[in-house]
Each structure stands twice: as structure tokens, then as C-alpha cells.
Design a protein around this nucleic acid. Structure first.
Lengths: 185, 185
DNA sequence: ACAGAAATAGACCGGTCTGTATAGTTCGAC
DNA sequence: GTCGAACTATACAGACCGGTCTATTTCTGT
């Protein structure tokens, strides 16, 4: 019964990497297969739902890892401001390392793609939101829910700005502002 | 010397509308022509740079109108909080009216597209940023530059979230947070 | 060893993509 | 009226798209 190859997972990883840099419509299936040296014949065996299913699963996987990293990063911080700073720093570093190519695995794919992909993105955003909200609430920050939404939006927008301008400054600007917000003044 | 038809402008308008809902790669040239009942023979006459030039000019045009609306909306507000509220409300309304299809004309196209499009988006974001910064500075809000960047990022991200979840709540959450930020506490 | 499921190979389909080439039409200037 | 520029029509190229198909190989359970 067990799987006998890791093709499915490798396909998912390759697809996730391409989707987050080129978006849904900008990434071709042939490119995914070529990039990962993947067998063409087995794409629709592993993903009978086609491109849509592949993208949705790729988003879910990548978003899961992202949320886990955010959770761990926040948990390791002594206070809310430090936590947000660490997240901002990590995102900025990751963006700069890839020469501003690899955007947010959720936000890059969400606007394109059909209903299946959109549903996956909604779930992913919800997870990220609850992670942030719980962290803020744990530290007694008021309006944790609304604030978490703002944090999410600001980070998503900052990544978009940074990627567009090829500059991490927007990320750090947002980080500075969020820090003051969370100090509860 | 003068133009003898309005084809060029109509092409631009149609393209702008489609790009902001479907993104760069999600919109085909044939679709633009069909949607606007535009003459197929003259596309590369008016836009010898092809799709890239068309998208860049469409972004520039749409962003110009957006910035002008933002400037007017902010200028009509008695204080910073009211100004941001009005902008948020307008964006939310517009998004809901189009059934969450029409996103930000800049942010929707920025991630895809080549260098020409990216350059147009950078300029557009810069204009929007300076409009916001000047407004905040005029009202004596401290850290106007950094804050304007955050406002931009938060609005861009909120539009992405709203479009993804089919719900204007993220926009209003961001609005509520920004309002407290700008009260200068 | 053998049966059968899991997985892969790779050709192939119709359609659409951006972009080009060329011929034709419409219009203003003189 | 004529000429040339502005504009449009149409056909087509070459590549690539997502997706389907059948044949074949690879592995597992018995």
C-alpha cells in the first residue's frame, strides 16, 4: 500500500517554488516537470485534478511550513515587538536571498487560480492569522484579532512592495510601525 | 499629426480593466481585443512594444487615476483618521461592487510582468506613497514617511486578503488599526 | 516465480499564446 | 484630385498551453 517513489512530493516542492515566484498563470506544467527532472507521465496520476489541484496542494504545503516557522519564531520571542521584528527580519532576509524573486507562497498565487486554489489560500491565511492572533492575545495585546489581520495585511503588502521595488525597506518600515502598535500605547 | 481614432485609449482602458482582475499572465491579448471590440490589426501599431508596453501604460494610466482619487479623498477629509477611513471605505466599496474581482491596478500586475511593467509599478507606488506621506505630514503626523509606507502596504495587503476571502472585513480591520496609529498616541 | 498494482515513458490532441507580415482602407494636407 | 501618413484587416507563424492516451516498466505481496 505504501508509496514506492517520492515523485509526488518532489513535484509538489518544485511546483511550490515556481508558483511563488511566477504566480499561477505564469508557471507552466512543463516547466515544473523540466525544473525538477520529473516524469511527465505521472503528473496526472498523482494529481488527477490537474494544475489546479497541484497548485492548491503546493500552496497548502508551503503555507504549512511558513506558518510553522512563524509560530516557532514568535514563540521564541520574549515580547510581541521582538516577535514581529524576528518575523519581519526573516521575511526580508529570505526575499533578499532570492534576489526578490520568491514572494509569499500564499499571496503570490491567491489572485490567480480558480476556486480550488482560492479555497486553499483562504485556509492558509486563516491559519497564519490565528497563529498571530494567539501570540498577541497570549501577551495581553488588546484587539488581538483585528491587529492580527492588520499584521497579516501589512506583511503581505510589504512583501509585494519589496518584491516590486527590489528593496527590503518596505518590510522594515512596516516592522517599525507594527512594533509601536504592539507596545500598546 | 493629430490622432484620427480613439482606439489606442480604448485599448488601454479595456486592458487596464482586465489586467487588474486577471493579472498579467492571466490576460490574453485576444481577450482584450474581443472584450473591447477593438481592431485586431492595430494593436502592434499603437503598442509596438507588445503586451509588456500595453500593460505598463495601462498600469500607469489606472494608477494615475487612483492616485488622483486618493489625493482628492484625503484632501477633503478634516483629519488624518477621517482621510484614511474614507480611502478604506472607497476601496472596500469598489471591491464589493465588482464581486471582489477588480483588485488594485498596481498590485495585481506587479508580481507578474517583466521589467517594463515592474518599472511602471515602482513609479506608481512611489506616487501613491508621496501623496499619502504629504497628507500625513501636512497634518503633523510624525514619521510620515515610514507611516505612509505602512499605510500603502497594509492597504495593498488588505485588498489581497479581501479579494481572496471575498470579504471586506480585512479592509475595515486595517482601517480601524490605521486610525489609531494616526491619532499619534 | 508470478500476478497485479503502482508508477513512468512519451507521443499526441486541440487550442491558445504572443508576435509578424502584408495588403488594404481611411483620412487630412496641399 | 492626389499623395502620404495614419490606421485597420486578415492570415499566419512558431511556440507553448493543459490535458489525455496507451504501452511499458518497476516494485510488492504471496
Amino acid at each position: 500500500m505504501g508509496r514506492r517513489s517520492d515523485t509526488r512530493e518532489r513535484t509538489l516542492r518544485t511546483a511550490a517554488n515556481l508558483f511563488r515566484t511566477q504566480g499561477y498563470h505564469g508557471t507552466g506544467l512543463n516547466q515544473v516537470l523540466a525544473e525538477g527532472g520529473l516524469p511527465k507521465g505521472s503528473l496526472y496520476f498523482h494529481f488527477p485534478g490537474g494544475k489546479e489541484q497541484l497548485a492548491a496542494e503546493a500552496v497548502t504545503m508551503a503555507a504549512g511550513e511558513l506558518c510553522e516557522w512563524v509560530r516557532a519564531t514568535l514563540a521564541a520571542a520574549p515580547d510581541p515587538a521582538a516577535g514581529l521584528d524576528a518575523v519581519v527580519g526573516g521575511l526580508a532576509e529570505h526575499l533578499a536571498e532570492s534576489d526578490f524573486q520568491r514572494g509569499c507562497p500564499i499571496g503570490t498565487v491567491a489572485p490567480d487560480g480558480g476556486e480550488v486554489v482560492r479555497a486553499a489560500c483562504v485556509t492558509a491565511f486563516a491559519t497564519w492569522h490565528s497563529v498571530t492572533r494567539d501570540f498577541l492575545a497570549l501577551h495581553g495585546v488588546p484587539n488581538a484579532d483585528t491587529l492580527a489581520t492588520t499584521v497579516l495585511a501589512a506583511l503581505e503588502g510589504a512583501q509585494l512592495l519589496a518584491r516590486t521595488t527590489h528593496d527590503t525597506a518596505p518590510l522594515y518600515a512596516v516592522g517599525a510601525t507594527l512594533r509601536t502598535l504592539v507596545r500598546g500605547n
